[in-house]
């Protein structure tokens, strides 16, 4: 079946089996391997992407369901050669260790900050509770997302002046 999916702003038309999971479409058909697979049962969030802006588990979503939709992956965060603030803050706050959960965490964080630019510790924890990290104990992931929120606010305040 032919699908047309916009991924990180680029439109791709491909013929896929209806059973192909979105995560495999991204990784195998497009070579975008930043989206990871960690569990099979929809419990870890390593495969998180944004579909029309909403964070979803791409291992629990068929590629055909994304037909005509817009998908953002970790590879789309950096724009015009410039890292997204959330990427910078994950590095700055040591929000990652092995890096396997990081793409999902950053995308969920980005979606959260768009709705709630100044989340509390508990609000961040609630938002990332569909994403498992085995390395960091979440402490610095929370800090990274909060720090990104603060910077984004400060930057938009600067821009408004």
């Amino acid at each position: 079946m032919e699908v047309t999916i916009t991924v990180n702003g680029r439109t791709h038309t491909k013929s896929v089996e209806p059973r192909m999971l979105l995560v495999h479409f991204l990784r195998e058909e497009l070579g975008l391997t930043g989206t990871h697979i960690g569990c099979d049962s929809s419990h870890c969030g390593a495969c998180t992407v944004l579909v029309d802006g909403t964070p979803l588990k791409s291992c629990t979503y068929l590629a055909v369901m994304a037909n005509g939709r817009s998908v953002e992956t970790v590879e789309g965060l950096k724009q015009g050669g410039k890292l997204h603030v959330i990427q910078e803050e994950f590095k700055e706050q040591h929000g990652l260790q092995c890096g396997y959960c990081t793409p999902g965490m950053m995308l969920v964080g980005k979606a959260l900050l768009e709705e709630n630019p100044n989340p509390t510790d508990d609000e961040v924890r609630f938002a990332i509770s569909g994403n498992i990290c085995r390395c960091t104990g979440y402490m610095n992931i929370v800090k990274s997302i909060q720090a990104a929120g603060k910077r984004m606010q400060a930057e938009s305040a600067d821009a408004a002046e």
Partner: peptide, 9 residues
């Protein structure tokens, strides 16, 4: 129900 990502779908 489930987790935030599952709840989105």
């Amino acid at each position: 129900i489930a987790d935030p990502l599952v709840r989105n779908m």
